[in-house]
């Protein structure tokens, strides 16, 4: 295995594009090192992108926030600006593993690891986040939900890597939230995760919503029908019941060591309702 820590995006892209065998990007490394040490992967090349300028930065851009691919979730949690704009995303990032893991784990890495159970991804999807991809053909921006294509698989092309995540400026009277279910209080992989972002008009009617589910399908889902259940309502009990039903209906989970199909399907609806209540209260300020 070769370890490289390039100083520029172009060098990183060139290294990744020219690698003879398998090449992996190292950001926080909290997933990569586990797979490396267990022998599940035997990379020819590991490219540490954290020494590239900007990778460790959180920058305000058009009222939103651009978060470098090397920013650990602990730093995100300490950033008042991002926390104020997208508390649900920050909370989701703050749920990834332990305090120690949060000292290293990144949003970009959580996304590119392409686990359907990744905590920050449903929250980013609900927030309408985009990923900026650097590659041999230059850069392109892609909706976060379009990056993972299945467990461990992404739509990134050879030589490409995610350089930053962009969280747009939230509309007035907006709120977001992320909840997950785990057996313990910490340290588990989500059995179900749910992100909700919604916007109210001045009268308190929901005018826009995005609802996302994790760990209930092969990839994180953006559930349009669940969002539609909220839009045009005051997010009252009837709307929340419809949201809950739509979320359960959208699930196509598996039985595994972390949960059953029935449990995941049921809990998806429970969490969606609870997350929507938090998002609503945040939208109301």
């Amino acid at each position: 295995m070769r370890y490289e820590a390039p100083q520029s995006v172009d060098t990183a892209v060139a290294l990744l594009a020219e690698a003879a065998g398998s090449a992996h990007v190292l950001a926080g490394g909290t997933d990569l090192l586990v797979r490396l040490r267990s022998g599940h992967i035997e990379p020819e090349l590991v490219v540490d992108i954290k020494r590239i300028e900007g990778m460790r930065a959180i920058v305000e851009e058009d009222g939103g926030w651009r978060i470098g691919a090397g920013v650990p979730s602990a730093e995100l949690g300490e950033h008042a600006g991002v926390r104020g704009a997208w508390p649900g995303v920050v909370e989701a990032a703050g749920l990834i593993g332990s305090t120690q893991i949060q000292g290293r784990a990144t949003l970009a890495g959580n996304l590119c690891n392409a686990s359907p159970a990744a905590d920050s991804v449903p929250a980013m999807v609900a927030a309408g986040a985009t990923a900026r991809i650097a590659g041999p053909g230059g850069t392109r921006d892609v909706a976060v939900e379009d990056i993972p294509t299945g467990p461990g698989r992404t739509s990134l092309r050879p030589g490409e890597f995610v350089a930053s995540i962009y969280l747009p400026a939230p509309a007035p009277r907006s709120g977001d939230a992320y909840l997950r279910f785990i057996p313990r209080t910490e340290m588990d992989i989500a059995v179900v995760g749910c992100g909700v972002a919604l916007t109210l008009d001045e009268g308190g009617t929901c005018i826009a919503a995005r609802v996302s589910l994790g760990a209930v399908a092969a990839k994180v889902l953006l559930v349009g029908k669940a969002a539609a259940a909220l839009v045009g309502t005051a997010v009252d009990d009837t709307a929340l019941a419809a949201l809950s039903a739509a979320c359960s209906e959208a699930c196509s989970p598996i039985d595994d060591k972390r949960g059953t199909v029935a449990f995941r399907t049921h809990v998806a609806g429970v969490l969606a309702e609870r997350a929507a209540r938090i998002a609503l209260s945040r939208a109301k300020g």
């Binding site: 057996p183 313990r184 209080t185 910490e186 340290m187 588990d188 992989i189 595994d256 060591k257």
Partner: peptide, 28 residues
Amino acid sequence: LNEEYIYGEDGRLQNPGFLDYRVPVASD
């Protein structure tokens, strides 16, 4: 509450790590 050896149909242990062999943590 949460600790268990989980074997698959193939007779292999499904959770050989502290991630899914869930011992109590301080916040529990």
